[in-house]
Every structure is written in C-alpha cells, then in structure tokens.
Amino acid sequence: MLFSVLLNFTITVAEVVGGILSGSLALLSDSLHNFSDALSILASYVAMRIGERERNEKYTFGYRRAEILVAFVNSAILVGVVVFLLVEAYKRFMNPNPIHGSLMLGVALIGLFANLISVLLLHEHSHENINVRSAYLHLLTDTLSSVAVVIGGIAIMVWNVLWLDPLITVAISLYILKEGFDILRETLEVLMEASPELDFEAIKREIESIPEVKNAHHFHAWRVGEKETHFECHVEVKDMPVSKAQEVIDKVEKLLGKYGVTHVTVQLECDRCEEKDVICGAEKTKNGAQGSPN
C-alpha cells in the first residue's frame, strides 16, 4: 500500500507538470484522481494502524472511526475540487486552448504504466481487507482513467480535436464526483450515527417470538466503524426468575447476529415503559403507523 502511495504521488506530480506544459486539462483532472486515491490509500493505511490500538478509558469504542473521519475529509475536498474542474472544462469548451498532444500522450503513458504496477501489487491481497480492496478498486479506476487520457492524446495528435480534452475531463470528473459523493454520504451517516439498513419491524417480531418476551421497543442502532454495528433495545419480559434473564439476552443476541449486529445491549424490564414504540418519541403518521426507523 505504501509503495502504491509513492507511485501515485509520483504520477500526480508528473501529470500536474505535464498538464501545465502541454495545456491538457484532462491530464490535470487525472492528476487529481491519482492524488485523491493516493491520499485515500495513505489514509486507509494510517487508519488501519490507528484502529489496531487498544481501547482505553477515554476511547471505550476504540479508534475505528479514524478511518471514517479521514474518508469524510478526503471526499469533501474531492467534491469541491471536481466542481472547479467542471467549471474549467466549460471554459475550455467555449475557448479551446492549443494542446501539446505528444507531451500529453507521453505523460499519460507514464501514469498508465505506474497504475498498472500498483494494480498488480495489490491484486493478490485485494480480498484480505476492505481497505485494501477499496484501494485496489481505486487504482483500477485510475488505470481506466489513464487509458482514456492516452486515447485522447492520440486523437489530439492525429486529428487535432481540441474539444476532446475537456470532454475527457468532464467524464473523469463526473465519475470522481459520483465516487466522492457516495463516500461522503456514507461517512456522514456513520458520523451522524444514522441507523444502518436494519429491518426494525422484522427484528421486533423475532424478539417478541421468544416465549419469555412480551414486548420489544425503544430500538437504537448505529455504526462505530465500517464493520462494527451496535444495537440496543428495551425488552419487556413476563414474570420469571432473575436466573432466566441471561437466557433471554443470549437469545436476543443470537438472532441479531444474523442481521450483522456485532454488539448488543439489552435492557430487560417489566411493565416499566409507558411508550412501547420501536423508536422512542418517533412521530406518528396520520393513520397511526410508525415512522421510518431511519
């Protein structure tokens, strides 16, 4: 991963210099793509190391959100810069600038070659870890982006089609914008402790199917990191010995495991809560149905 970061930073510098000297906006947009991916890979590596640190009294959940924070900042910056590139591409459509096709092609070939090396380096390990898999997919798209710039360089050299340069820029920018916005939305949901995609009504029915349970309510679900989902709820039980309480908790934890929940907190009670909705304090619709758990 670190070698891939070094390669991508090298490509970035080469494409920035080559883009300025050749006048190619496509090279500059591709350099942004490589730079953002280099930062993403580096951030993933650093976050993996930070996430390995042990929990303590101050950070009882550990450090898994380090990766989320870094991804949020990276994607927010990326979306802003892409908007700038789209504005510049529009200006190029209106007033085409002369482009040094051979220089553009040469730099693009260097970027393509370096990206291919990075892809080959991470291919074998792409299924071991989600961070590595994400980095691998980013580098794979970098390679495809470099192919597009190479084709554009050849077309400009042969047919002098200057409009192709901003067109490639728009295509690359829109793709980066989509990827960046998806990451931005997901990281924001984690930071805002939005509920993951869980079927609360189905979970409620399953918990209430346990013989000792009368009602399940006041659900809360959130993600600490990418793979760690926490869930807590109130479970009203029938009259029974205290010794059976742990059996109920174990049954609830087991059924929530199939929903991908990694940490469960169950508050057992007996005729305690007056309001017994799935979401505590959730607004009702006119027909009295429960609002969306999200």
Rank of each mutant, 00 (worst) to 15 (best):
L2Q: 12
N8W: 12
I11N: 10
T12H: 08
V17I: 15
V17T: 12
G19P: 08
I20V: 15
I20Y: 14
L21V: 14
S22D: 14
G23I: 13
S24I: 13
S31F: 07
H33K: 10
N34V: 04
F35C: 14
S36E: 07
A38F: 12
S40C: 00
I41M: 07
E54Y: 05
K58L: 05
Y59Q: 07
T60W: 06
R64F: 06
A71T: 13
V73Q: 02
A76Q: 01
L78P: 00
G80A: 02
F84L: 15
L85I: 12
V87M: 06
R92F: 05
N95T: 10
G101N: 08
L109T: 09
F113G: 13
L116A: 14
S118I: 03
S118H: 05
V119E: 01
L120S: 09
E124G: 02
H127N: 07
R133E: 10
H138D: 08
L139C: 04
L139G: 05
L140T: 02
T141H: 09
A148I: 01
A148Y: 02
A148E: 01
V149L: 03
V149G: 03
V150A: 06
I151C: 00
I156F: 00
N160E: 13
V161L: 13
W163F: 14
L164Y: 05
I176G: 10
F181M: 05
D182M: 09
T187D: 10
E189L: 11
E197R: 14
D199C: 00
F200E: 01
E201L: 11
K204Q: 13
I207Y: 05
E208V: 06
S209F: 00
I210M: 04
A216E: 06
R223S: 14
E226D: 04
E228N: 09
T229D: 02
T229Q: 03
F231V: 07
E236V: 06
V237K: 09
M240H: 09
P241Y: 09
Q246D: 15
V248Q: 03
I249W: 02
D250T: 10
E253W: 03
K254F: 08
L256V: 04
L256W: 03
G257L: 11
Y259C: 04
V261H: 09
V264D: 05
T265Q: 05
V266Y: 08
E269K: 02
C270N: 11
V278C: 10
I279M: 15
G281W: 02
E283D: 11
E283R: 13
T285C: 12
N287C: 09
S292N: 11
